[in-house]
Simulated assay, not measured.
Amino acid sequence: MLDREGYRPNVGIILCNAKNEVFWGKRIREHSWQFPQGGIKRGETPEQAMYRELHEEVGLRPEHVAILGRTKDWLRYDVPIHWVKREWRGSYRGQKQIWFLLRLVGRDSDVSLRACDHPEFDAWRWNNYWVSLDAVIEFKREVYQQALNELARFLDADHRRSRREGIPCGRAAETLPKG
């Protein structure tokens, strides 16, 4: 499913823990690391796609996370032509993504990289929110930076609110306005 400009609708997920570290997945049989992401199927909302991808790639369910926020608009990246399948060349440009910032309210042990038959990642770790993007494939780096920049305000708001109310990080997120 492509839009008129040749972009495939997609969601990106920045999952953070109580220390504001972000989930970083190592692509299976590759040396690159990335945030979970995936396509939006026909008839799905971005939020529905995010929960589906979260389960498929990380094994987490809605009860394991709190949504802190999402990007207002689509963020786009172009895929270099040599990465595009021959049959898509000329029509496919890249991906447009709605990014979600989530707080893990479950445990690290809830993460399962083998939740589906075709795993995306073969390893994962927590990294500083402002992780160096050198390990991300080059054509995705700018979108990653845009998403981190736009969503940081939700992370800060959740942290401030949790401290003010004396509740664990993430529990305050359940009452934060979305978007």
Rank of each mutant, 00 (worst) to 15 (best):
D78Q: 03
P62N: 09
R93F: 08
G166Q: 05
A147G: 10
V131R: 09
R76I: 03
R93Y: 08
G166T: 11
G6A: 07
L155H: 08
G106F: 10
R125S: 12
L148P: 04
K26G: 06
P36K: 09
L60K: 13
Q37K: 14
I40M: 05
R27Q: 02
N10L: 11
L148D: 05
R29E: 14
A135E: 06
V58C: 10
I40V: 03
T175A: 12
L68T: 10
Q145A: 04
V136M: 04
S91T: 12
A123C: 07
H82R: 15
H82T: 07
R163P: 11
G69R: 04
G25K: 06
P168H: 08
A172S: 10
L60A: 02
D110Y: 02
E56R: 03
I167A: 13
R8W: 03
Y7F: 02
Q95R: 03
R89Q: 15
W74P: 02
L54Q: 00
Q37L: 07
N17W: 00
Y7P: 10
I137N: 04
K140I: 01
R164W: 06
D117S: 12
S162M: 11
C116Y: 13
H64F: 08
A172Q: 01
K19S: 12
E56G: 13
L102T: 01
V22T: 09
D156E: 14
A66F: 00
A18W: 02
R160C: 07
W33A: 15
P9I: 02
Y92T: 08
R27P: 04
S112E: 07
F35N: 11
Q97I: 04
N149Y: 02
V111C: 09
E87G: 13
C16I: 15
R164M: 06
R93T: 02
V136W: 00
T71L: 09
V58K: 11
H159W: 02
K140Q: 03
M1G: 14
E174L: 07
G170L: 04
D110A: 11
C169R: 02
R8Q: 09
E53H: 07
W124V: 01
M1H: 05
V11N: 05
E30K: 03
I40L: 01
A173V: 04
D156G: 14
F139R: 10
R160Q: 12
D134S: 10
